[in-house]
């Protein structure tokens, strides 16, 4: 009898019930920091922005009257629609250029640099460490009227006096924004290319595929989602930018971001600025939705 009791006591820790699952309150407390973050930094600002865009501007003060006046006015305005088209064009062209440069770059780094690939990747994204404004000013120094490019062309005798053609134009904005977007697209492309195991390249070569066909049939389909994500990041960045057009764009390089700044600043028309902001977000989401069609991949890389 006593022996049985000892055995039972010895068994106790094993037969004891496991600890209870956290109560609903506890669960809520665990997720509350994340919820708070989303509420304060994502939901509330957007609610404010959308509300403002639906209110009315009365000589600099905001009348809390709900209407779509701001939007109808915007889309009736020639200036706005021109700017919207131009901004879309600039963002698409510069992100596409950035992708066309960054993806082959990432491919070469991943496949040809061997153990130096991390070093090479860091060298390419190092510009991100430098202040955004400084990088734009660097372009000003290169492309400006008394800039490096003009100086060079003059010294080799291709032009007789400094040209103003290189700066303050749509092209200048595209060049600068391409440059801004490259590291982001590169990072995304590099990550997805680096995830493709070496033995896929070998298996494809083993099956009789040249490097180009290996790329077309195996590597590109597997890395396309990563490139699409990089493209989306680049697009969002360039679409909403206002520093670059303000610095190197001149009048013909003005983008939507600039008039958002104007509306909230000098024009003191917050509802209109909010409406433009909402339009920018909507356009961004639209492009992201289109891009997400390319991110789908049924496969799992093991």
């Amino acid at each position: 009898m006593a022996a049985a009791a000892t055995v039972a006591r010895r068994l106790e820790p094993i037969t004891a019930l496991p600890r209870r699952l956290p109560s609903p309150i506890k669960k809520f407390l665990i997720v509350s920091p994340a919820l708070l973050w989303i509420l304060v930094l994502v939901i509330l600002p957007n609610v404010f922005l959308i509300s403002y865009s639906l209110w009315k501007n009365e000589l600099g003060s905001v009348a809390h009257v709900w209407n779509f006046h701001n939007y109808s006015e915007l889309f009736a305005s020639n200036v706005f629609t021109t700017l919207l088209k131009r901004t879309l064009l600039i963002a698409l062209v510069s992100t596409t250029c950035a992708t066309l440069i960054a993806y082959p770059l990432a491919y070469v780094v991943v496949t040809k640099f061997g153990r130096y690939k991390t070093l090479a990747a860091i060298m390419i994204i190092i510009p991100l460490w430098v202040s955004y404004l400084m990088r734009i000013f660097a372009w000003k120094i290169i492309l400006g009227e008394h800039g490096v490019l003009n100086g060079f062309l003059e010294s080799v005798g291709l032009i007789s006096k400094p040209s103003t053609a290189f700066i303050y134009s749509t092209t200048t904005v595209i060049i600068a924004l391409t440059y801004i977007a490259i590291p982001y697209v590169f990072l995304s492309a590099y990550t997805s290319l680096d995830r493709v195991p070496k033995h896929y390249y070998e298996a494809s070569a083993d099956c009789g595929a040249s490097a180009w066909r290996t790329f077309r049939h195996v590597i590109w389909p597997l890395t396309r989602p990563g490139v699409a994500v990089g493209f989306a990041i680049g697009f969002v960045l360039t679409f909403g930018d206002y520093v670059t057009p303000a610095q190197v764009g001149g009048l013909s390089g003005t983008m939507l971001g600039s008039i958002v700044l104007q509306s909230f600043g000098t024009a003191d028309n917050w509802p209109q600025g909010a409406a433009i902001g909402v339009t920018i977000i909507a356009a961004g989401l639209l492009v992201l939705a289109l891009v997400s069609l390319f991110t789908r991949l049924e496969a799992e890389i093991d």
């Binding site: 033995h199 298996a203 494809s204 083993d206 009789g208 195996v218």
Partner: peptide
Amino acid sequence: VPPYRRDVNTVFQNYALFPHMKVEANVAYP
């Protein structure tokens, strides 16, 4: 001579099947 020009095929230790291709596409690849 590069691997793709050799009349040699390999079965890899980790199989190296292309993850985005169905079985038939994988087998038809060569």
